[in-house]
Write a protein that binds this DNA or RNA. Sequence first.
DNA 1: TTGTGTTTTATTGCCTCC
DNA 2: GGAGGCAATAAAACACAA
Length: 276
Amino acid sequence: MKRFCSSDSMAALISVCPPTEENVPKSKQMYSKEFQALLDGIDDEDYREEASQTTVKKRRLSFNQVKALEKNFETENKLEPERKSQLAEELGLQPRQVAIWFQNRRARWKTKQLEKDFALLKANFDALKHDYNNLEQENRALNTQLKDLTAKLGKDNADSSHSVKEESPISETENNVTTEESTKHGLCYNVNAHEQQLVSPASSSSCALHFTPTSTSPQSVMEWFQLTDSRTVMSSVYQTQLVKLEEQSNLFSAEESCNFFSVDQAPTLQWYFTGQ
DNA sequence: TTGTGTTTTATTGCCTCC
DNA sequence: GGAGGCAATAAAACACAA
């Protein structure tokens, strides 16, 4: 266990209170007397009892000590026992003080790292949200446009007196996939674009979902669109972008990742938006 | 000078590893 | 079971506005 007797604490105190000018605060040079008392009575039973009653002042490490510790922390943020003792000797500190300093330093580093990660994550999330809003707006505009066009088409069909049997503009031999659902609605979903993407990822930028209604009746078109809920489409676009972001932005490097994105659970950041 | 917030040093309790 | 790490916390030191 890591329990330290009073003599350990006293020794630690002495180590941070060497009788040098460096360690004496400029404004408060009031420790020399007290420090001398500690030196004089370090092994004295009476003093020990007194020291336990009096408040022992905590001292900050000197500028040079901190500088040296920082330098060591840069090269290795965890110390081997030998290195710890060596460093303690070099700096006139107790090994335990060095250990504590490194422990606290690691904690500070972790906090900073979390702040950095959060800021980065937030910036990327904001950008993504902005993109999402734009896409949603675009989607709404396209839906409105579609409604107008289908309404117009319905009107045209009603006006035409001669009824011609409708034919599918694209035959089955054109490598289409006809699902049970789409067939029911007289529609055919063209997956050519998806196949192209699988073969040639470079062409993904020009890839788009093409739907090819086997019936051009406005009702069928509208039904098909009702089947593909716009939110589902948007969510898939959103997820694709999220994956791309992770791949491209170098946001989560192996060393610095905080595992915000786990395989099991996607981040929601709901906690962040509840406050907005 | 003093009240208050922040930083730094140190302790405690728990956990993991050997 | 001891050593060492970490999280939480205490307390001293420090900074700074009023």
